[in-house]
């Protein structure tokens, strides 16, 4: 007799053209299906097919679908740590630091605990930077202040406080707005994201350093659905997700550089590094916004302490 097969519906927040759809989602599907020898099948739905990204957490929580991918920004309403997970501006400087924070300093476990309160199993897909593209070079703080930047969420607040003119423009109008000059710059992921939205056609400067580096993509699974699997299969799923974090974080870094090189070669994109005075100013403003995130809950405060401790040890910030 055949073993019982289970099929999970998986709503993605990636459209099929996003590299992560194949590299993250299809990859994990293939691995899970292979290792469970077909006992667990994943049925994938590209962005927006069943649920919009903002509603996926609730749909998974309710068990309407068993699994999904989200940006933690869409779960802020439920998880007080999601604000920190989706990135504090100008905190980390390298991707490995964020990986260490998540996996070695226990931030990932804190996220899992908080998600578990909603009956959801949480696993970060990868950590990567968010970077800006602009249509003119930034050589001084005055240049930065004159920019109209398309932003969203916490970064919008941060950029406004830092002196730029940030505002939100929906994704569907971003390309047109940037090409006509309604805005001078935008961030949509980093290099791969900007390329996927064709932003390099109309904005030729890629800004370094990153606005933030964070675990901006995550898998969520309905806990009951996970528990309904045999213990062996549930372990296969959890282990596959843990491995995926390291595999994808590193691969994504490589793909980022590839996308940027391609944009530089094909679209004449140049890298512009924020002048030290601007970076200094942004870092100062950034710390205020970290405090806001830390106030969301005791847990968020604890996570922020952990983070600031690490940054102090690395010599990035002074003790506050």
């Amino acid at each position: 007799q055949d073993a019982k097969t289970t099929t999970w519906r998986v709503q993605s927040h990636w459209p099929t053209a996003s590299s992560s759809y194949d590299d993250s989602l299809v990859r994990i599907k293939n691995i899970i299906e292979e290792r469970t020898e077909g006992r667990l099948k994943l049925k994938l739905y590209p962005a927006g097919a069943l649920f919009k990204a903002q509603q996926t957490f609730n749909a998974v929580k309710r068990g309407t679908i068993e699994m999904g991918t989200i940006s933690p920004a869409y779960a802020q309403n439920q998880m007080s740590l999601a604000g920190i997970a989706s990135g504090l501006p100008f905190a980390f400087r390298n991707v490995w630091e964020v990986a260490y924070f998540h996996k070695n300093l226990g931030f990932e476990d804190m996220l899992r605990e908080e998600a578990a309160e909603h009956g959801v199993y949480y696993s970060t897909d990868k950590v990567y930077p968010t970077e800006m593209v602009v249509n003119k070079p930034i050589n001084s703080y005055a240049d930065f202040k004159g920019l109209k930047i398309r932003s969203s969420g916490a970064l919008e607040t941060f950029l406004t406080k830092a002196g730029a003119s940030a505002s939100y423009i929906p994704g569907g109008e971003l390309y047109t707005a940037l090409s006509s000059g309604v805005v001078d710059g935008a961030h949509w992921g980093a290099a791969q994201g900007a390329a996927s939205m064709s932003l390099y056609e109309v904005a030729k400067y890629h800004v370094k350093p990153a606005l933030n580096i964070a675990g901006t993509d995550a898998f969520i699974i309905n806990q009951e659905a996970l528990d309904a699997l045999s213990e062996a299969d549930a372990k296969i799923v959890r282990d596959a997700l843990d491995e995926q974090f390291w595999y994808r974080t590193n691969e994504y870094l490589y793909l980022e550089r590839l996308a940027l090189s391609k944009a530089m070669a094909n679209d004449g994109v140049k890298i512009t590094t924020l002048p030290p005075e601007v970076q200094k100013k942004l870092t100062a403003v950034a710390r205020e916004s970290w405090d806001e995130m830390g106030k969301r809950s005791d847990k968020a405060g604890e996570a922020l302490d952990k983070l600031e401790n690490m940054l102090q040890q690395l010599g990035y910030i002074e003790a506050s």
Partner: peptide
């Protein structure tokens, strides 16, 4: 401008401007 073309570009990865 066309919203359908922007969605097509998002799903297929081609350039919006083109």
């Amino acid at each position: 401008p066309s919203v359908i073309m922007i969605l097509y570009s998002l799903i297929t990865g081609v350039s919006v401007g083109k």
